[in-house]
């Protein structure tokens, strides 16, 4: 594990519960979820719609606090007792990289600036940030579109820029929510393999929500969610 410090599992989730709403509209999105991911490990999350996959990523990504249970990242307790225990924004920009189902690029920034902004938010000097952003785009095969605005990029190209952005700050933890939904199977596989490569090179932990069963061989471990519960995936014959 790099960065955050103490030894042990990079991500440790214990007895996580998440309840949305109350009374009639109460939804239990997470029920007693336990998960430990070590550095350099690449994990897949499968499961039907509404199973709670995104909810779990949001909890680990310090976006929405769980109702009960605790989360530790790199040995630091980040969530417990229905709230976050650290400065979420500085923690996010320093340690976590996100890829969402939609690329979610900033429309008024070009491809390269979209990557660069993540670096500059984390106090990287502009010149160095620019260089690294170009390298990342190159790495993802979209450097020829560096000066284009997101609206001028195809869905797949946008998604690759988003992946580049998630890698920019060399995060200890990458959370990707259906990152390949907009990509063809070849590109989708490439992105998965890229995560794997980054994970192994940098020792980052990666958690990917996916519906694409064809690329499952890339992952170290595969979990399945259903109705808020997490269990290891048993491949169907």
């Amino acid at each position: 594990m790099t960065g955050v410090g103490a030894r042990g599992p990079a991500v440790e989730v214990e007895r996580l519960d998440k309840v949305y709403g109350s009374g009639n509209t109460e939804v239990r999105a997470l029920r007693d979820v336990n998960l430990a991911v070590s550095g350099g490990e690449v994990i897949a999350l499968l499961g039907p719609s509404g199973a709670g996959k995104s909810t779990l990523l949001k909890a680990i990504g310090l976006i929405e606090a769980p109702t009960a249970g605790r989360i530790a990242i790199g040995g630091v307790a980040v969530a417990g007792d229905d709230r976050f225990l650290v400065n979420v924004r500085s923690f996010r920009r320093e340690h976590i990289g996100f890829v969402f189902q939609k690329a979610n690029l900033i429309p008024f920034l070009t491809a390269v600036e979209n990557v660069q902004v993540a670096l500059e938010i984390n106090d990287e000097p502009a010149r160095a940030a620019r260089r690294r952003s170009m390298e990342l785009l190159d790495y993802l095969g979209v450097s020829d579109r560096a000066g284009h605005y997101p609206s001028m990029l195809s869905g797949g190209q946008q998604q690759r820029v988003a992946v580049a952005r998630s890698l920019a700050n060399r995060p200890d933890l990458i959370l990707a929510d259906e990152p390949t939904a907009a990509l063809d199977s070849v590109r989708g596989r490439q992105v998965m393999e890229l995560f794997r490569k980054v994970s192994h090179e940098q020792g980052a932990s990666v958690i990917v929500v996916t519906h694409d069963h064809r690329a499952l061989d890339v992952f170290d471990r595969i979990f399945e969610m259903e109705d808020g519960r997490l269990r290891p995936h048993e491949p169907s014959p």
């Binding site: 924004r89 320093e94 938010i121 984390n122």
Partner: peptide, 12 residues
């Protein structure tokens, strides 16, 4: 939306 995204990326 862009501001939310910036916050999500951890912008101060």
């Amino acid at each position: 939306h862009d501001i939310a995204l910036l916050k999500l990326l951890g912008a101060r």
